[in-house]
Design a binder for these strands. Structure first.
Lengths: 308, 308
DNA sequence: CACACTTACGATATTCGTAAGGATT
DNA sequence: AATCCTTACGAATATCGTAAGTGTG
């Protein structure tokens, strides 16, 4: 017996209409096909569900028993299919994204807005974590994808470069270098005191790698860009931030000057797992990312130049 | 989309095995047919449930969602089918019977025993009520059928005569008529004092109709045969009972003498409703009734003659 | 005799298994 | 090269609709 949705729908229709012709219409079938469908159901179950005489159609007591079952089973099945259909048209589902804090506070909100306008019912889970955590979450397939710094990744991780962001020297308007329009990294190294970030930070890692084997004349080490912004605004030192982070400094009216580092740019990538098939929703979000990320970052950069 | 049990079974098998070939075997299909079945399911839902590459089969996130649904829906559906299958082989279901008290206390137990031996899991509901109530319960289709006295029934009731039971004069061994081997109804009428039954009793109704327009010289009117048995045993009078009721008197060692009445016999019938389609279980019980009732009654009769 | 379900039947669609094709490790 | 899924294809099966058959009120 291969009970199908059609069987249940036909049965329910007939149980309610108690008339083959009308029930058949309801199911968009000819009366003959409908009759065969009911007969097939009865055969499959091995018992009569309806007592027919040419004038009336009535449920047998086995039919009553089946009706009780179908009354709960049919709506559940219909609901299940509807849920899947909704998923298919991106009415439901969720996308889990890990992203660097700088991305979360700069570009991501605009991308979310775009995505949400198109797919208002998709749930988004955003985890703003350090680069290493981003990678680890993707490796463990706990997130659909990550937006993080591009680093060499072997194994089952797939990296897709989105854009690269540049670095800026940020200082108080009364800082000795405040009047410069462009700086080299050697000039920056001599700008004492300098505020650097925690070792776990991808900015710090990138800069360490970029400037090696030179040493930073650090004076402060902070965890968040906003802390650095406060220190710089108070005239306690200067700092270096990627374009993705400049906005935090713009509000204080600080000087923002582009730098040329040996590794001038930091690659930003979309990182995903080879064996985590993206859901339709995730695929849709990734598409938004691919289409807009580079442009948004460029806008941030020109904005930083203008304000600096 | 016509979701079927096969779809769900195939999906569940594949989700668990994560391998088309093995899942196909589990479903007793060739791998190719199984593949088509899954493809059909995915097409119907409008989305991919599995991410295949030649080495691995994995659920997509939509597949995970569907798995959650199927994990509850499939067992429910299977259980529903099993219940219906059980009904078909009389492993489940119930039979509701209304029957006269005399039948309930005489023949019915043996029939129940037979039926129960063949169908141990069928629930039986027995209502021992007066004839009028039997008829009314069947008319209202509240019972599968009734075992009661045969009376003219019009409309939607179907009467099937099973047997006819005879009447016996029952008296104390020291009663003046105790030595007789056979009595006529006129002799019985003069046997004073006589114990009769309540107006609602079908025995009383039958006798009233049978003896009309003569009058009973009644001395006591009781509701139950067992009460009458007590009175007769105490030497307070004689009574008239149908064969179905004699057993209650045999235990007291009373004399049981057949009578010839103008309407010698009382028909016992199986009464059912034209439009209450009997369940398989009810049909099975009715069959037992048809096969055994007359024989059982005959046995009671010869037994009564022997003991009388 | 009229209505309502069943049966008959040819056309169409689906599903099956065998066998070949293609991709990944 | 081996494994494993998909595709191709002819045969078997199921389902459809039209139309005729059947039985009950």
């Amino acid at each position: 017996m291969n009970l199908s949705l059609r069987h249940m729908r036909a049965f329910a229709a007939l149980a309610s209409a108690r008339n083959f012709t009308r029930a058949a219409e309801e199911c968009h079938l000819t009366q003959s096909a409908f009759s065969a469908l009911i007969a097939n159901l009865e055969d499959g179950l091995g018992l009569k569900l309806f007592a027919r005489n040419t004038r009336n159609v009535d449920l047998t007591s086995e039919g009553e028993a089946f009706l009780n079952i179908v009354k709960s089973l049919l709506p559940e099945t219909e609901r299940a299919l509807e849920m899947m259909r909704d998923q298919a048209v991106l009415k439901r589902g969720k996308v889990a994204i890990a992203a660097l804090p700088t991305i979360c506070s700069s570009i991501l909100p605009a991308l979310i807005e775009t995505f949400h306008a198109a797919h208002p019912d998709i749930e988004l889970i955003i985890e703003d974590v350090a680069n290493a955590t981003c990678i680890e979450q993707v490796r463990q397939r706990r997130m659909d994808f990550a937006l993080c710094a591009a680093t060499f990744q072997g194994g089952e991780l797939v990296m897709e470069t989105l854009a690269s962001d540049r670095f800026h020297f940020v200082c108080h308007p009364r800082h000795p270098l405040a009047g410069r329009r462009r700086l080299t990294h050697t000039e920056v190294q001599q700008a004492f005191p300098i505020i650097v970030y925690d070792q776990a930070s991808s900015i710090r890692q990138h800069l360490d790698a970029a400037i090696y084997p030179l040493h930073w004349r650090k004076s402060y080490e902070v965890n968040n860009l906003s802390s650095a912004a406060g220190l710089v605004a108070a005239g306690l030192g200067a700092t270096i931030v990627p374009t993705l982070g400049v906005r935090q400094f713009q509000v204080f009216g600080l000087r923002i000057i582009p730098i040329d580092l040996p590794l001038e740019r930091r690659g930003i990538c979309l990182l995903r797992h080879k064996h985590r098939e993206p859901s339709l929703a995730a695929a849709a979000f990734m598409q938004v990312v691919r289409e807009r990320f580079a442009r948004e970052l460029e806008a941030l950069y020109t904005d930083a130049l203008a304000s600096g």
